[in-house]
Computed example of a mutant assay.
Amino acid sequence: MVSFAIFPTDKGISVSEYVSKVVENVRSSGFSYKLTPMSTIVETNTMEEALQIVNESYQILKPHSERIYLSLTMDIKHETGSRMEQKIQSVESKIGLVTK
């Protein structure tokens, strides 16, 4: 599972035009994903697939910017399945619903 934020730093205060191109690519990848206000989380089967998504995101932005910000966090577990949902359900089983 990879959580990443990537955007051009030289396009002003709003970069949603560029972020949406990245999210569109993630959506078309077929992997399970979740867009959050601060990052996009993608659940892949391998580290290589996760890194491919990140690299594709960079390649999408590269022609549009002289400087790109990238923050990346990975949770690598040798198990497949709906880990995003499992993590949320595990917390909710202890404290109740966490989303509105």
Rank of each mutant, 00 (worst) to 15 (best):
M1L: 05
V2Y: 09
V2N: 12
V2S: 10
F4R: 00
F4D: 00
A5R: 09
I6D: 01
F7G: 13
P8Y: 06
K11A: 01
G12A: 10
I13M: 10
Y18K: 02
V19K: 02
S20A: 11
S20N: 07
S20D: 12
S20V: 02
K21I: 05
V22L: 01
V23R: 08
V23L: 13
E24Y: 07
G30S: 03
T36I: 08
M38W: 07
S39N: 14
S39A: 15
T40W: 06
T40R: 06
V42F: 00
V42I: 04
E43G: 00
M47F: 12
E48V: 15
A50K: 05
Q52K: 15
V54K: 00
V54Y: 04
N55G: 09
Y58F: 14
L61M: 14
L61Y: 01
L61K: 07
H64P: 05
H64E: 14
S65C: 11
S65K: 05
E66T: 14
E66M: 11
E66S: 11
R67H: 10
R67L: 08
I68F: 08
M74F: 15
D75M: 06
I76H: 08
H78L: 15
H78M: 13
E79P: 09
E79Q: 08
T80I: 09
G81N: 05
S82E: 12
R83V: 09
R83H: 07
K87Y: 12
I88P: 00
S90M: 06
S93M: 13
K94Y: 10
L97M: 13
V98G: 06
T99V: 07
T99W: 03
